[in-house]
Nucleic acid binder design. Structure first.
Lengths: 222, 222
DNA sequence: GTTACCCTTACGGGAAACCGTAATCAGAAG
DNA sequence: CTTCTGATTACGGTTTCCCGTAAGGGTAAC
C-alpha cells in the first residue's frame, strides 16, 4: 500500500474521515492533511526536496475563502502547479463536482489517476480508488464512470463561456461586441454575438437571455 | 455527556468523521448514522416508541437526490416533521449554508439549539456546540454568530423571490403580470413589477435584469 | 371633509433585445 | 480562376424592456 499520502481538503469533517479511513482501513503509514492549496503545495515541494516524496495526492477542487490570502485558490490550480513542474505523483480528485464536461476536462488534461464524487458512498469509492491506483489502474467513481462513453450533447466553447459571463456581469450585447473587437476575439460583430446567443438559447432550452444565463449558472458553466 | 445521538448526513465522508469525533472525543455511547431524512425520521419515531429516545440530533440541510424516492427531501423538512409532532429534542444543524437570512430563519422558527457552518474548523465547532448544548446553552459557530446583532441590509420578501424565479424561468414581465393577476397576487400590474425589478436591481447592484438574476442565483435567493 | 402620504396602476418615449434577410469574406473543391 | 460553402457582418422592423411622469385609491392625522 502507499506509504505517504497528502490529503488536501478544506473541511475538517471530511479530512478527518479520509485520514482515519486511509490509516485504519488501508494501512497507510503517513497521512498528511492540508486545508489550504498553497500550504499543500509547499508541503509537496518540501517533501520532494527532502527526498521523502508523497506516493499519492488526494485533493478537493473547491476551497472556501478565508482570512488567508491564497495564491493557489483551488484544487485545479494546485494540480496545474504540480503537473507544470513535471511531477507525476498519482492524483485522486475528491469533489462534489460531477458535471460531465468539468470532470472530463480535469481527467483528460491533468493526468488524473482517479476521480471520486463526494456522495453517500464517496468514502467507500475513495477507498476503492486508492486500492485500484495502487495496483496501477485508473479509477472513476460510478457517477462519472460514463464520461468517456456518452458523447457530449453539445459543445460549449471558451468563447461561449466568455459571452455568458459577460452577459451575467450586466454587459449589453453592444458592449460585448466592443470588447471582443478590442481584444481581437472573433467573431466580434453584434450580429454574430446575437446569433451565438440564439444558438446557446437553443441548446440550453432558454426562451430569452435571462433564462439562458440562469440555466448556464445552474449547469455551472459560469 | 449525551448518551444517544442521531447524525443525519448524506456524505459518508462527513458522517464518518462526526461519528468518530462524538465517540472518541466526547464519549458519546451510541451514535446512529442516517444518510436519508426519511430513514432518520423513522429511526427517530421508533426510538421514541421504544422508550429509548435520542438525546440529540445533528443534521445536515441539503441532501443529494438518489435512486430512492424520498418524501422528506431535506433537513428543513425533517426538522419540521419532528417539531411538528411536538418533540423538543435538541437539534444541531451542520451545514455549508451560511447566508444570514437563511440561517436566521432556521434558528428562529424551528427552535434550533445550535447551528454550525461546515468549514475548515467545522468539526471543532461542532464539538464545542455539543458541549455547550449539553450544558444547556445555545451555540452558533463564528460564521453565523452575528446574525442577531447585525440588521439586514435589505429585506427580500417572498414576492421578490417569486418574481426572480419567474424571470429566471424565462417569463416576460408581461407574462408575470398576467400570472400574478390570475393568482390574485398584489401588486400585479406590469408597472409595479417593473418598479419592483428596479428596486431589486438597486439592491443587488445589477445593471440590467440579466445581471439581476445572475446575482440572485449567486446569492442563493433562487 | 381635507390633507398628506404611500402604494399601485397607467401611459409614453427611448434603448436594448429579438429576428429575419441579405451582403461580404475566406477557404476548399473542382 | 471559378464555384461552392460556411462563417461573419450589416441592416431594418418588431417586441420587450427600461425609466420617468402622472393619475388613482386606500389609510391616518388633523
Amino acid at each position: 500500500m502507499f506509504k505517504k499520502v497528502l490529503v488536501v481538503e478544506d473541511l475538517d469533517s471530511i479530512g478527518y474521515g479520509i485520514s482515519i479511513m486511509l490509516k485504519q482501513e488501508l494501512g497507510v503509514q503517513e497521512v498528511v492533511l492540508s486545508q489550504y492549496c498553497g500550504d499543500a503545495y509547499l508541503k509537496y515541494i518540501k517533501s520532494v526536496h527532502d527526498q521523502t516524496p508523497y506516493d499519492l495526492l488526494i485533493t478537493d477542487l473547491s476551497f472556501n475563502e478565508d482570512h488567508r490570502i491564497e495564491k493557489i485558490a483551488n484544487g485545479k490550480q494546485f494540480i496545474n502547479k504540480i503537473r507544470g513542474l513535471g511531477y507525476r505523483t498519482p492524483i485522486i480528485v475528491f469533489s462534489v463536482e460531477e458535471k460531465p464536461t468539468a470532470v472530463k476536462k480535469m481527467v483528460q488534461t491533468h493526468d488524473i489517476s482517479g476521480y471520486v464524487v463526494k456522495s453517500r458512498n464517496g468514502l467507500r469509492y475513495l477507498r476503492e480508488a486508492v486500492e485500484s491506483i495502487y495496483e496501477g489502474d485508473k479509477y472513476l467513481s460510478p457517477q462519472v464512470s460514463n464520461i468517456n462513453t456518452k458523447k457530449e450533447l453539445f459543445e460549449i466553447e471558451d468563447y461561449d463561456v466568455m459571452l455568458l459571463s459577460h452577459l451575467s456581469n450586466g454587459l449589453t450585447q453592444e458592449e460585448i461586441a466592443r470588447i471582443f473587437n478590442q481584444s481581437d476575439i472573433s467573431p466580434c460583430s453584434l450580429s454574430s454575438i446575437e446569433k451565438r446567443i440564439n444558438r446557446l438559447k437553443d441548446e440550453l432550452k432558454a426562451k430569452n437571455t435571462i433564462q439562458l444565463v440562469a440555466n448556464a449558472k445552474d449547469l455551472g458553466l459560469i
